[in-house]
Each structure stands twice: as structure tokens, then as C-alpha cells.
Amino acid sequence: MTIDWAVVEMAIPLLAEGTVTTLRIASLAALLGLTGGVALGLVSLGGWPWARWLVRAYVDFIRGTPLLIQIFIVFFGLPLMGWRPGEFWSGVIALSLNCAAYVAEVVRGTVGAVEKGQTEAAKSIGMTQGRILLYVLLPQSIRPMMPALTNDVITLLKNTSLLSVISVYELTRSGQAIIATHFAPLEIFALLAIYYYAIISVLSWISRVIERRLPAW
């Protein structure tokens, strides 16, 4: 077989547009997912029993159902609740909700694993659970959490490709559009793979730089 270089050449700039959308969705969802996930993780460690139970149920639901289904539920469910955010924001919301559950598990695991003496010392100076989590346990957990959180963000980035099913014009969808008119599936999918791989490599590199910059003790 031969590679249709003309299609490749034409596709490279076209895919850039989809890349921008993918990056926008991924950064927004990562921001919301990380913030929400940290909050949920802390609640599952130090919240009221009913709140812990809710977080538990939420995490179980997200982990126990396919992301594709979650995307459809958000996309078709939000309008039923009287809100039509459009496919872009539906996608951001679905991915944030999904990411937050996994981040919550990382936070719960890492923060919960900080040596017990830390909590006892904090209690001994009169700190309450919320302050202990915020000022003593969470700051110590950020560095050990980095590799697992990076994984979650990488997964999130790859998951943006699923949003093509609700017609978000992100990287994968923009590739599919080119395939539909020029019919060069292998070239385009290979090109898509390279795009994702490049983005994720940069992401991993950034994460390593951040991890190295974080104070160690």
C-alpha cells in the first residue's frame, strides 16, 4: 500500500483546529475535575457520614459505568432539567464529573495514607478534622499524588475523543470529517495517534517538571 502524502499534508493544519478544541476541553475539564475531585476526596475523609456515603455512591457509579454512557446521560439529561449548555459544555461537564471521581479516589488514598502521628500531633494542638486535612495532610500529599493525578489527566485527555459522538468538533471528530471527504482512514488515524501522543508527551513532561519543582522534605 502507499501513503497518500497529499492528504496528510492537507490534514495537518486542518487537525490543528480540532487540537485547539481538544486542549480547551481537556484543560477546562481537568481544572474542574481536579478541584472537584480534591473536594470530594477531602469530604470522603473528613465529612459528615452521610456526605461520605454520597461521595462513595458517586465514585462507585462513575467507576461502574462506561464513560460513553455518562456522556450521553449528561448530553440528553441536562436539557431535560431545563439547561441547554450545548455539546461543548456538555462534554466538559461529563468529563469533569468523570475525572473528579477518579481524582477523589487518588486523594482519599494518598491523604489517608499520611502517617497517623501527623493527625495526632495536629489534634494535640487542638486542630479539628477540616483544618488537619487542609493544613497538615493535604500539603504533604501533593507531591506523592502527582504521578497518579498525571495519569488521570492523561486519561481525561484521551477520553476527549469520545466527545465526537455528541458532535464536539475536537481532534478525533475533525479527523473523521477529513476521512469522510477524502477517504484516507489509515493516514488520518495514524496522524491522530501522533497528535495525541505528542500532546500527552508534553503533558507528562510538564508534570515531571512540576513534580521536581515541588518542595521535598
Binding site: 502521628g117 501527623q118 495526632e120 500531633a121 495536629a122 494535640s124 497538615v136 500539603p139 504533604q140 518542595p215 522534605w217
Partner: peptide, 12 residues
């Protein structure tokens, strides 16, 4: 006040 055998200072 409580002083622990293993100090339990906050390392960060």
C-alpha cells in the same frame, strides 16, 4: 500539650 516519642513534626 503533648510531646510524642517520635516528635511528629509537620515535615512540610
Amino acid at each position: 500539650g503533648f510531646v510524642f516519642q517520635r516528635f511528629n513534626l509537620f515535615p512540610h
